[in-house]
Design a binder for these strands. Structure first.
Length: 907
DNA sequence: CGACTGGAAATAGTT
DNA sequence: CCAACTATTTCCAGT
């Protein structure tokens, strides 16, 4: 990870990158300098960047890392973030950057810290990384400049991004043809640019931006790609269907670290060989469990982001770094094809793309832009064609975590999609648009926008695991057209991710009925072969619809908002057999247990078991117990469970545990988070709705029932102010929800350790700003735009005040002692929305979180909720998870770092 | 005829 | 290395 981070930085620097070796420290140092440089380039961003870096090492790093690491992902996460920012700025949209920001966000308080941690950690901590690095191909990401070898680079996957597009083309493209074109589509990646309007590149930033842009074009992909995202792409093309794709490998694939299956078609080999393994560990498979924990994964994202960033710089470079892709399958095309070569060039970007792409990609702008030419994309009358006013040049990468509301604006999913939607393979016909539970279709609305200018609503398929929200490598949104479709749309490729752009018209009250979006399943084997891809497809069948809107502000900035739907199970089998927990009446309970927890979902059986589990950071089980299920009240969609007492009735701080519904050996739901509260603790955990009653706290009662009622909807009650409950989703959605939490500010704090924020705070400020810069994209000030871009968290932090978080602004300052911005951030989003915004992405990925925290940590709750209703604030306290000690240490570190950093950067 | 679907057989990958 | 399972992907057939 760290490496990646470094790289990232370097990228930022644009110019010079220094190779980072792996030493953490080294990296740091480098960074600083870089940062400096960068500033020149980008200026702002940098500044923060540095901070970030510094911080990273320090604090969190370790904790977080380690944790994360364990979880699976390794580290990665965090570091990335910082990188991202940079990238962000540079890229414009690229994508990747996003994360970073997030981290930054923390800075406000926490943010900085976090990021730092990551980085730091990464280096030192994970051996693997190192290993990988060495082993792996190197990426030279550095832009042009230096090459760093990133060990992980591969891991990041980003690389893949590039090509991906190509792949797409293959099948999907075909079908879709319209939109994409074959090759071209890819290019689009850069969505922002892509989007018609965007001129993204241009970017405010100026020259630099240009570069970025250009790069971006291609580069971005890679970089970003979010890790995951990345590409699969290449693959897309895919192979021949004839045989089962999947098996290309024949053997089995082992995900092992390499992630990619070992197998690969010969053809691919090229790249592979070298890299093959790129992936690296992190990804590792993501076994179910893993998911849970994994919060860490963010890492990947982060990494990705970082990569992206790097890429940005020099596309070419990127390519280098990137491994290659593995196969492309494009059938049609040539089965063989593919391959991108490696690194070295290949990629130039992401570009790698297949041959096809290349050109396109490369072109900086062109691509995207559609130029009409390139794409076939049908253009709708709407705006598509029009260039939009969009000002902002660059848009945040798809793996960035963005808030659902900022200032007066709030993007909400008014009608959620059904929890199951069987995705179709390329070999099949469409299985139709995603529907709503009511039988209609999902509905998304932007509140607070009073301008007459139409906007574009972007939709892509994101992940629904515990990690930060990012584009799903194994699923793509599929544009549905026909008589029955009332909503116009057009596709663009952003990185390896297909993005559906839907007009949001004032005349429709900025409301859009999403009846034009289906979900395409890509063969696991195709995606897993991508270079950068680290995730595995097996049992990774849940997705979320992610909506984004970019609002230009008078001041030239762009506010980017994002809302993610509840998780959607896309596999036929899983939908029929696996238990799915959509909601839970309470997120927490006193350690004494005894209360009834109402779970609502699907596929529950009379003999379904509910198991509570507590895992250590390293993954081993600390405690596991089966809860009593009320079989008399059994329903396939409802389970009444008696909350088991926690193993230790004397906990002084909240304890995060998980529980899952089990219908049999391998038929388990995803882990659901749950928190045991200490009697004394006034802590605020949150739970949105519910009841949680901590011992002390009152409330509890409601729980289940309340939820129950609520279930479908948002949690009704928010917590009280007093409590601070978080609103999280009550339930968290089964799967995904979790993530959310993480994202939530809370998470950050934690990661950072709560302390950080606080402590860190002092130093941090700078950092925060930096982020904004990155945001730069948005030109303006720090405030909103940037904020928005960032994750909510960030946003809030950053601008906290300004941003206004979602109107409510509610921030719960209280929670965080520090009052660090960080905390606030979180809240903002949620609060705001009346509706409930979907959890947004979970966002947040923050990498930061420690494993523990991340997962379940209470904090998470906050965000999640998303449900607006609750505004509740909740702030969790960090302390809970993190130990004070830890925090203290971190803080110290941070301080030290900061001081040093400041020097660098400023200097 | 074509877009959806629901089912399920054929394959693959795990244990 | 095989068998039993499980998960994924391709096919079929009815609307």
């Amino acid at each position: 990870m760290q490496n990646s981070c470094l790289q990232v930085f370097s990228k930022f620097n644009f110019g010079s990158l220094v190779p980072s070796a792996g030493g953490n420290e080294t990296g740091l140092h480098l960074i600083a300098p870089l940062a400096t440089n960068m500033k020149s380039a980008e200026e702002d961003a940098f500044s923060y960047t540095p901070n970030v870096t510094l911080s990273l090492p320090i604090s969190m790093g370790n904790p977080c890392l380690s944790t994360q690491y364990h979880n699976l992902q390794s580290s990665s996460i965090i570091p990335m973030s910082s990188c991202h920012q940079d990238s962000y700025a540079l890229h414009n949209n690229g994508g990747a950057p996003g994360y970073y920001l997030t981290p930054n966000l923390r800075p406000n308080g926490a943010p900085a810290l976090e990021s730092p941690r990551i980085e730091i950690t990464a280096y030192g901590q994970f051996p693997e990384d190192e290993m990988e690095e060495s082993a792996l191909p190197m990426v030279k990401r550095v832009n042009s400049i230096v090459t760093l070898t990133l060990p992980n680079a591969d891991g990041y996957r980003d690389p893949s991004c590039l090509s991906p597009a190509s792949s797409l083309s293959s099948r999907s493209c075909n079908s879709e043809a319209s939109s994409y074109e074959s090759g071209f589509s890819y290019n689009y990646d850069n969505s922002p640019q892509n989007s018609p309007w965007q001129s993204p590149c241009v970017s405010p930033k100026g020259s630099s931006s240009l570069h970025s842009c250009t790069h971006a074009g291609s580069p971005r992909h890679s970089p970003s790609g979010s890790p995951r995202t990345s590409v699969a792409d290449e693959s897309w093309p895919a192979p021949p269907r004839g045989s089962r794709p999947g098996s290309p490998c024949n053997g089995k694939r082992k995900y092992s670290f390499n992630g990619a299956p070992t197998c690969r078609h010969p053809s691919y080999s090229p790249g592979n060989s070298p890299t093959v393994s790129p992936q690296g560990s992190p990804r590792v498979s993501v076994p179910d469990e893993a998911w849970l924990a994994n919060t860490n994964q963010y890492t990947n994202s982060a990494i990705v982001a970082a990569i992206n960033a790097l890429t940005t710089d020099g596309m070419a470079d990127l390519s280098d770094s990137v491994p290659l892709k593995s196969r492309k399958t494009s059938l049609e095309h040539s089965p063989a094809m593919s391959l991108k070569v490696e690194p070295g060039q290949e990629e130039p970007g992401p570009g790698e793309v297949g041959q096809d792409d290349y050109p396109a990609h490369r072109m900086p702008f062109k691509k995207e832009n559609y130029c009409g030419g390139f794409l076939d994309v049908p253009q709708h009358p709407y705006p598509w064609s029009k260039p939009k006013p969009y000002i902002s040049p660059s848009l945040p990468a798809l793996d960035w975590q963005l808030p659902s509301c900022s200032g007066p604006y709030s993007l909400q999913i008014e009608v959620q999609p059904k929890s199951h939607h069987r995705a179709h393979y390329e070999t099949e016909g469409s299985r139709g648009a995603v529907k709503a539970l009511s039988g209609g279709h999902p509905v998304v609305q932007l509140y607070g926008y009073m301008e007459s200018e139409p906007l574009t609503l972007q939709l892509f398929i994101g992940t629904a695991d515990d990690r930060l929200l990012r584009p799903h490598a194994f699923y793509q949104v599929h544009r549905i057209t026909g008589k029955t479709v009332s909503t116009a749309s057009h596709e663009v490729m952003q990185s390896n991710t297909k993005v559906l752009e839907i007009p949001l018209l004032p005349e429709n009250n900025m409301r859009a009925i999403i009846d034009c979006a289906g979900i395409l399943k890509l063969r696991n084997s195709d995606i897993e072969l991508r270079k950068g891809e680290t995730d595995i497809g097996r049992k990774n069948t849940r997705v979320r619809m992610v909506f984004r809107v970019h609002i230009n502000q008078p001041n030239g900035r762009t506010v980017s908002l994002q809302a993610a739907s509840n998780p959607i199970e896309c596999s036929q089998r899983s939908a029929q057999e696996l238990p799915l927990v959509e909601k839970q009446s309470a997120d927490s309970s006193p350690a004494t247990g005894g209360k009834t927890l109402v779970l609502s979902g699907h596929n529950f059986l009379p003999d379904s078991k509910v198991v509570f589990v507590e895992k250590a950071q390293d993954g081993h089980h600390l405690w596991e117990t089966e809860a009593k299920v009320d079989k008399d009240s059994f329903k396939s969609t409802t389970l009444l469970v008696e909350i088991p007492p926690y193993r230790n009735q004397r906990i002084s701080s909240p304890v995060q545990v998980n529980f899952y519904v089990c219908n049999g050996k391998r038929k388990r739901s995803q882990y659901q988070r749950f928190t045991y509260l200490s009697p004394n603790v006034p802590i605020i955990k949150t739970e949105p709705n519910d009841d949680y009653e901590p011992q002390g706290a009152p409330r509890l009662t409601m729980r289940s029932k309340a939820y129950y009622g609520q279930l479908g909807v948002t949690p009704a009650m928010p917590a009280d102010p007093g409590h601070c409950l978080v609103g999280g989703y009550p339930s968290s959605s089964p799967s995904s929800s979790p993530k959310l939490h993480d994202l939530s500010p809370a998470a950050y704090p934690k990661c950072l350790s709560g302390g950080q924020s606080h402590h860190a705070v002092p130093g941090i400020p700078a950092i925060q700003e930096a982020p904004s810069r990155p945001m730069g994209v948005h030109p303006g000030s720090p405030d909103h735009a940037p904020l928005a871009m960032l994750q909510p968290q960030v946003a809030s932090h950053l601008s906290s005040p300004g941003t206004g978080d979602c109107s409510h602004g509610y921030r719960p300052p209280a929670l965080f002692p520090n009052g660090s911005p960080a905390s606030s951030p979180v809240s903002p989003e949620t609060p705001f929305s009346p509706a409930y915004s979907p959890p947004q992405a979970p966002p947040a990925g923050s990498p930061h979180l420690t494993p523990v925290a991340a997962r379940s940590s209470p904090p998470t709750l906050l965000r999640e909720d998303s449900s607006p209703p609750t505004l509740a604030v909740t702030v969790k306290q960090e302390p809970q998870e993190l130990d004070q000690m830890y925090l203290d240490d971190v803080n110290e570190i941070i301080r030290n770092d900061l001081s040093s950093i400041s020097v660098h950067s400023h200097a």
